[in-house]
Amino acid sequence: MDTAASSNPKDQSRPAAAKGRGQILDALLSGLSRLCALAVLFIIAAILISLFMGAWPAFKKFGPAFLVSAEWNPVTEEFGALVSIYGTLVTTLIAMITGVPVSFGIAIFITELCPLWLKRPVGTAIELLAAIPSIIYGMWGLFVFAPFFADHMEPWIADNLGRLPGMGFLFDGPPLGIGVLTAGIILGIMVIPFMAAVFRDLFEVVPPVLKESAYGIGATTWEVLKKIVLPYTKAGVVGGIMLGMGRALGETMAVTFVIGNADRLEFSLLMPGNTISSSLANQFTEAVGEMYTSSLIALGLILFVITFLVLSAAKFLLIRLTAMEGSRT
């Protein structure tokens, strides 16, 4: 291309040729990059379509009852999603109950309390912990946490909380170590560093002038947090919790190790259960027959829709909250 241009006898045509080549390359780059960006949209559409096609036989056979049936029997080919959906929601709830307050406390500690020399090490440690793959958490849960939990905590839980009127049935059962409660706690431990890092980043966005003026008129640290930091970062905090929730809902490996892979509906948190992702991980490669595979793909579709809704809700909530914030000031 270069030699062709320079061998051209007319010297004036060189800039024109370069210009033409520039235009072609311009179009090429912008076209190619647009194509790659559109690929992102294409992928999500392809995922939805392929999941829906895979799940169609199960939906056609079982109808809406698939969502509320607690039957999961590969032998008679009767399938329902209730056990897995229940497990997914309950483990996520337990993870949020354990994870949110702790990560909040860690973020407060790092931004407001911690001496300056400790700030960076603790912050870095939290971020590094957030990067550890979930399979490590699952394995630790299976070999270390579950035996400890069965020996030292579950007997106490069954003896004390199991007798509570009204909610005792939640804590009734043998101390196996493996079960819905253990899975939820492992999930909670896993999302702590992630959410703590998000919250810390948010708290550090608050302009120092705002905090300093509150301290200046005599506010305590807690009052500064409650009246200045939280209102300022409200939108982000909700978003951070939602992000952690999205992670907990779809997490596979941390749960699969410790949940016990049981397909019976048990309300007790001490009993083994299943989440959507652990059912897929445990059974997908072993599934024989169209209906079995199709039912598993249907579970996957349900999980995808749930996480999609949670993440979209987080985004829309954030947009609305920031808009409100803007109109008030």
């Binding site: 392809a46 995922i47 996957g300 979209s312």
Partner: peptide, 25 residues
């Protein structure tokens, strides 16, 4: 705007679903 939104969703999408997707396609 829509690519950004979908990209954020894909960022937090359960990775096992991506496995199921690649399995079927």
């Amino acid at each position: 705007t829509s690519v950004r939104f979908i990209n954020d969703v894909l960022l937090s999408a359960p990775s096992i679903i991506l496995g199921v997707f690649i399995y079927s396609v």
